[in-house]
Design a protein around this nucleic acid. Structure first.
Length: 594
RNA sequence: GCUCUCGUAGCUCAAACGGAUAGAGCAACAGACUUCUAAUCUGUAGGUUAUAGGUUCGAGUCCUAUCGAGAGCGCCA
């Protein structure tokens, strides 16, 4: 029995996050100032310096600091004694002991204990003040600045994804690549890269002719040709086409051009419904007009990268790791699908320093030849990164639904979005690593909308806004951060939220490096969990709560809000300010922003 | 047959460079609403990380083999 859900929020759109907040409280004005040094840097610096004093040579290139899972092992831990013992010719446990003694003699900021444990781990115990400093950094950076990096400054990257043929609507399988690609682009953006989201349109070739023939046949009341497209949408679109032509203009319509425009409009519409905004729609045809294809072939010839055999032109892709050489131009003079694709990637390299392609698993065989082609054109194949998303299988009524435009049966992405909502669709697609195949059970997702983890996370955000609204009504302001005693935040629940916030910059950097937005999903679920725990155990407002504590907790809440907003934005999921179930009395509708 | 991606709790999945006792959610069981929203929280139970070797202080992670799953192997796109 599905309960419907009503969510009041500005949904999805990048940049919308936070806009609605101004309704409830004045913007924070934390003291301007440099963010404090990350506690890990001060510790690793101290470790390096002590190691040098102890005569360890060579010094390890990196001093790895990690948060132990076991609280008995302290707040931070390093394996540097284990890692460098061999090279230094030392016993790891003894080296660790010396390291710990020296560090304790002159401890880095916040450090109150250093112990050696196990085979030679060095564990650091810190005062909670390091976490209070994290909170100050978070609120000073705000939604815009927290977990933002500049590693990519000056590097242009083109993320190409979806790129489905304009021969029919996008199906549910495309949704995964779409949400993934967009989120990867958001990660690049947050890491300082100059990002372009691009959709490559295969708008010429055999499949377009088959598509046109299918539309024409249906429009004329004939059966679709054997090698045509058989989906129901062909009949629907053909009817639309007929309706338009009989509408007075009387002019004959070219089914290919009409269908092309129809399909593209369909693509744009569903992408928009998911808040995916392509910067560029790149047409294959445009490369014929521009001569880019001929130029590319000439460049390959000049590089000695092609040869002729049997009347066809072959690419020497085996020179760079491919299984076999590939035909670029068939013996009848027609280019294969590969030819324009190579030209397209050559074009992209003219516009960017780094290319990211998102392919479905059914195209993984394509990777080797594309890399080979780029190498033959003189590019570094490593600058073309190809992310493979494993396939999505759809289930409805307990059986698998084939996702093929050629067969009649398919589930359109637009249907899925209508059924479960854009936020749930995006979150669901981004829930797991794209290395795992995903089963999207439509009945399950539709019936369990309430259990979808997206609402768990969004609810945390909504709760925050209700707290702030109540605080506002009660006349509580956060005041200036400098006047607040953050050391009052000492409850385990409070510290847990702060620890989670500290992780976000790492998660963003790693998620970008590994093109793994699901790490953001995992993190934000964890933050939401910490926040719900805090909410349950630590009241912000009420009798018996010292005003100073209320204010400190309001700042903690603000920090959590920033973390949730940043992560949800990276996922392209809306951050609602309130959520009410159908069966609840409903909230306060006054004061709602536009 | 060859290539690629995978195999973790009953189910769906996490697990940064190789790190200490492999974590969540769902499902099951037992609890918590006079409270800033219970769409929440707490507890219990659940594991030979497919199998067998190897590398080393240390392996879910790296190497080899086997078994199993998916995908790809066209002068189609």
């Amino acid at each position: 029995m599905a309960r419907t859900i009503r969510t009041r929020a500005a949904t999805g759109a990048a940049g919308s996050i936070g806009d609605s907040l101004r309704i409830y409280f004045s913007r924070p004005h934390p003291q301007a100032g440099m963010p404090s040094m990350d506690v890990r840097d001060s510790i690793t610096d101290a470790v390096r310096s002590v190691l040098a004093d102890l005569g360890v040579d060579p010094l390890p290139a990196i001093v790895q600091l990690e948060r132990p899972g076991n609280p008995d092992h302290g707040d931070w831990s390093t394996n540097v004694a284990l890692a460098s013992a061999k090279a230094a010719g030392r016993n790891p446990r003894e080296l660790g002991t010396q390291l710990a003694e020296c560090l304790l003699a002159a401890p880095p900021a916040h450090v109150v204990g250093v112990e050696v444990a196990g085979p030679g781990f060095v564990n650091f115990r810190l005062t909670d003040s390091w976490l209070h400093e994290v909170l100050a950094d978070v609120v000073a950076a705000g939604v815009h600045g927290w977990a933002r990096h500049d590693d990519g400054a000056g590097t242009r990257v083109i993320v190409e994804f979806v790129s489905a043929n304009p021969t029919g609507p996008l199906h549910a399988g495309h949704g995964r690549g779409a949400c993934y690609g967009d989120s990867v682009a958001r990660l690049y953006d947050r890491c300082g890269y100059d990002v372009v989201r691009e959709f490559y349109i295969n708008d010429r070739g055999l499949q377009m002719q088959n598509f046109a023939a299918s539309l024409a046949a249906r429009a004329a009341g004939r059966d679709v040709p054997e090698d045509g497209y058989h989906g129901q949408y062909i009949a629907d679109w053909a009817a639309e086409m007929v309706a338009e032509t009989s509408d007075g203009s009387g002019g004959a319509v070219d089914p290919m051009e009409w269908g092309y425009a129809r399909a593209l409009a369909s693509h744009r519409s569903v992408m928009e419904s998911l808040s995916i905004d392509f910067d560029s729609w790149f047409s294959e045809r445009s490369m014929i007009a521009s001569g880019a294809i001929d130029e590319t072939l000439a460049a390959l010839r000049a590089a000695g990268a092609v040869y002729e055999e049997g009347g066809a032109v072959w690419l020497r892709s085996t020179d760079h790791g491919d299984d076999k050489d590939r035909v670029l131009v068939k013996s009848d003079g027609e280019p294969t699908y590969l030819m324009p694709d190579v030209a397209y990637h050559r074009d992209k390299f003219g516009r960017a320093d780094r290319l990211v392609n998102v392919f479905g698993a059914d195209h993984h065989g394509y990777v080797a030849r594309m890399h080979a082609a780029m190498a033959l054109l003189g590019h570094d194949p490593a600058e073309l990164e190809i992310a493979i998303t494993q396939l999505v299988s759809l289930q409805r009524d307990g059986r698998e639904v084939r996702l093929s435009k050629r067969t009649g049966e398919m589930v359109e992405l637009a249907e899925v979005v209508d059924e479960v909502g854009a936020d749930a669709v995006r979150f669901t697609y981004l829930l797991l690593s794209v290395d795992s195949p995903q089963t999207f059970d439509l009945d399950l997702v539709a019936s369990q909308v309430n259990e979808n983890p997206v609402f768990y996370v969004q609810y945390a955000h909504a709760r925050i806004h209700q707290i702030v609204r109540r605080a506002d009504e009660a006349g509580f302001g956060r005041g200036a951060l400098a006047d607040v005693d953050l050391s009052l935040l000492s409850h385990p629940r409070e510290l847990e939220v702060l620890r989670a916030l500290h992780e976000l910059p790492d998660i963003v950097a790693r998620g970008c490096r590994e093109q793994a937005p699901h790490q953001v999903t995992t993190w934000v679920r964890d933050l939401a969990s910490s926040f719900h725990g805090f909410y349950h155990d630590c009241r912000v407002l009420g009798e018996g709560i010292e005003p100073a504590l209320t204010v400190a907790r309001l700042w903690l809440v603000e920090g959590a809000r920033i973390g949730l907003a940043v992560a949800l934005d990276l996922l392209g999921v809306g951050a609602p300010t309130e959520m009410w179930r159908e069966d609840q009395a409903g909230g306060h509708s006054e004061g709602e922003g536009a």
